[in-house]
Design a protein around this nucleic acid. Structure first.
Lengths: 239, 239
DNA sequence: CGGGGTCTGTGCGATACCGCACATATTCAT
DNA sequence: ATGAATATGTGCGGTATCGCACAGACCCCG
């Protein structure tokens, strides 16, 4: 039986060869990730990076007038805090826990030390960052061209891919914040998708019934992002 | 007098210390960048990276139905082809010349060799990539929340910042492709901005009269991106 | 100098989403 | 049990943008 709290639940950590794993795992710290917890605020220096295992984190931009829009989703396939090793130290966006769970965190300096060894960790982190670029690009495209219902399906699938179960604990209000739309719009989209028999939801819990149907309703953006993540970061544990 | 074709017109190249500059400049090749020229096609392996000097390149996503949306703009502050050193080799987007001019190009392998020396060039490229991340993120936000006119102003300013003059050779049709909107929408937005006395345009040539006024009409997105580029990539030539 | 291509302007109905108001339903605390 | 807080449903007018059709203006070239 795998440890319910095993760093290897995170795909980046799982891909590390023994030597790197030994070095890094010793410094990891398991932290709970409650819903709504803010890991980084816009423009604020980051002290740690986070490797989600059972949690999901949203990168969210909050505008001057308070409106918001999600820029990317990070789950157990990735890491929160790329700007630390990219050299900028901060970003103009906020990182907030979208689905409660756990993550392992590492001190910023320790991650940088490992990154500058120019070993497997660096290669992984750079490839992950490219996948993140794709996700952001596709978010921009999706915001421009696709309907709210398509975006809702895409968002649901992206989140689902980063969770162990078919259930999502998430109110329509919060989803609306992520998508940058009205809460009522989400109600309408979710209603249609439920009527079509693809999901059921009830006061903050969404259960996916028909994944394939959801994929058919989503726009191409979901598939593009998924394919690119699979290409750049094939999930293999280092044996 | 500076050479009209000097690699140091590109800010990344200009920032290199003497040793790196000597190594890299020897391998640079000056290439003309005609309007509409496609540097990379979606998913196709890249052979070179491009350092624009007097040209501007758009990173454009083209959807299955032919609709398109610009993801980022690259000019003399950056490099086209980050996925080469990030490890992915390809991206799902297209790189197309948006404003004619010149660029220096470098063979992909030579860039990678330099990148893996882990010297100043690596540091610069990573910081540039983070700036690119911010630009993409802000494009997503802008597409979600801002009016066409605001986006038009933002786009104009971002392009202007990457050009030596106050004129832009660009039809409304092409701008519409970039912004992912109808051509008529651009006509309307440009008409209003012209009426306000901020620009004049005439059959594919836009001249900016009042830059400050444009900034006031643009959404906050422009300022966020500009500030982040200035922070991450202060323009200093290595003395 | 005339004609064909290119670029821009305008009008009009359709539509997706917004902002707001308010109704209903479920959960929770006391 | 009861009231408060939370979550979802619904209706309605307003608006930005779309899709389409077509007119006018400008430019280049023969």
């Amino acid at each position: 039986m795998p440890n319910p709290h095993d760093p290897r639940q995170n795909h980046l950590l799982a891909a590390l060869p023994a030597e790197e794993a030994a070095r890094i795992f010793a410094n990891l710290e398991l932290v709970p990730m409650p819903l709504g917890y803010v890991l980084y605020e816009s423009g604020v220096q980051m002290r740690h990076v986070y490797f989600p295992t059972t949690s999901i984190v949203s990168l969210l931009y909050v505008m001057e007038d308070g409106a918001s829009a999600e820029i990317a989703i990070v789950g157990n396939e990735g890491i929160v805090g790329v700007s630390l090793f990219m050299g900028g130290e901060t970003t103009p966006s906020r990182a907030i826990v979208q689905s409660a769970g756990h993550a392992y965190r590492l001190k910023g300096q320790q991650l940088k030390d490992e990154f500058y060894r120019a070993g497997p960790m660096q290669r992984l982190l750079l490839r992950y960052t490219q996948a993140l670029l794709t996700q952001m690009a596709q978010t921009a495209v999706c915001n421009r061209h696709h309907t709210l219902e398509q975006q809702f399906c895409r968002w649901l699938l992206l989140s689902l891919d980063r969770l162990p179960s078919n259930d999502l604990i998430m109110t329509q209000e919060l989803i609306a914040n992520m998508l940058g739309v009205r809460r009522e719009g989400v109600t309408e989209a979710a209603g249609k998708v439920q009527k079509a028999g693809l999901i059921t939801y009830h006061r903050g819990r969404i259960s996916v019934i028909d994944r394939t149907g959801l994929e058919a309703r989503a726009c191409e953006c979901y598939a593009v992002v998924k394919k690119e993540f699979d290409r750049l970061l094939p999930y293999e544990t280092a044996s």
